[in-house]
């Protein structure tokens, strides 16, 4: 009673997860707005009566319930026809309120009280019901707070966990990734790994004197005399031509062949010479 403010249960404020009881019976009351609110507030006749009391910041223990009959009737009149199925229970409480109010207004003789000893005082009976109802309503709110903590317990249920996994009930993977991230990652990886040496587009051909000398010797085996231009007729590579010519000069220098050219730019005749080492051995 010391703290007449927000009711608490074991220090936990009984607020969250429960729609606060908010409604208005004032002039600005708009039916279309109240429909949703009423679903919660007018869920039962005791809920409505308790809301009326708390809206007026009155104490359930001491309030004269008969005084609320008018407000209750007013609220009841605003209930949509669609909720007539529940209306009887509201009317029942309303009748009690009117009875309580009537008794309070009319002078009562002390004698009938003894005669109807078994009959409980309707106001105290309704008050007791209100207190009991409030107790469970607040307990429900306290439970809601507890539930909202998310400290749920789970038993082992392999099948359920598997189904959850299969149905994709997994944690949200978060916002979609920017495709640029992928490109950046690729670039980064390129920087990390040194690029492989790309295969050369032009094969560096190595033309050796030995190769070309072999070609010349082969030609000489086919014919002891040939014209260089004939041998190189199909060769378009100048390097090959030049190297072949150099090889020819080498062969001439080694006295394997004799060269003859009648005129500048004329045909170069290549003639095989007898092996020199044999002559040296003889000589």
């Amino acid at each position: 009673m010391a703290t007449a403010g927000a009711p608490t249960t074991a220090g936990v404020p009984v607020t969250s997860d429960v729609t606060p009881v908010e409604f208005s019976f004032g002039a600005g009351h708009r039916p279309e707005d109240s429909t949703h609110v009423r679903t919660d507030v007018f869920d039962g006749p005791l809920a409505l009566l308790l809301a009326l009391i708390e809206q007026r910041q009155l104490d359930v223990l001491t309030v004269k319930l008969g005084d609320l009959a008018g407000a209750y009737l007013d609220a009841l009149a605003r209930i949509e026809h669609g909720r007539l199925g529940l209306l009887s229970s509201f009317v029942s409480v309303c009748a009690q309120l009117i009875l309580i109010k009537t008794r309070a207004l009319l002078p009562r003789a002390p004698q009938p009280v003894a005669a109807t000893e078994t009959e409980a005082d309707p106001e105290e009976e309704l008050r007791r019901r209100l207190i009991e109802y409030r107790m469970f309503r607040d307990a429900g709110r306290s439970l809601a707070d507890r539930r909202a903590l998310g400290a749920w317990l789970y038993h082992r249920e392999a099948a359920a966990a598997l189904a959850a996994g299969r149905s994709g009930a997994r944690p949200d993977p978060g916002p979609a990734l920017d495709p640029q991230t992928l490109a950046d990652a690729l670039l980064a990886s390129v920087r990390l790994v040194p690029p492989l040496p790309s295969p050369p587009e032009v094969l560096a051909r190595t033309i050796t004197l030995e190769e070309r000398a072999a070609v010349i010797r082969a030609a000489l085996r086919r014919a002891p005399v040939f014209v260089l231009q004939e041998l190189l007729r199909d060769v378009t590579d100048r390097v090959v031509v030049a190297v072949t010519f150099l090889a020819l000069l080498e062969l001439a220098k080694g006295r394997e062949v004799a060269l003859a050219q009648a005129e500048p730019w004329g045909p170069i005749t290549v003639t095989q010479l007898p092996p020199v080492p044999a002559q040296d051995a003889d000589g």
Binding site: D17, V18, T19, D40, D43, G44, A47, Y133, F136, R137, A139, G140, R141, S142, L143, A144, R147, L149, G150, A151, W152, L153, Y154, A160, A161, A164, S167, A169, R170, P171
Partner: peptide, 24 residues
């Protein structure tokens, strides 16, 4: 609790005041 809920994808939904007081 919250960790396991993420794994099994549990969602308790909301309980109305009527449901809560009845449950209580």
């Amino acid at each position: 609790g919250r960790l396991i809920a993420r794994y099994v994808g549990a969602d308790g939904g909301r309980l109305s005041p009527a449901a809560l007081e009845t449950l209580a």
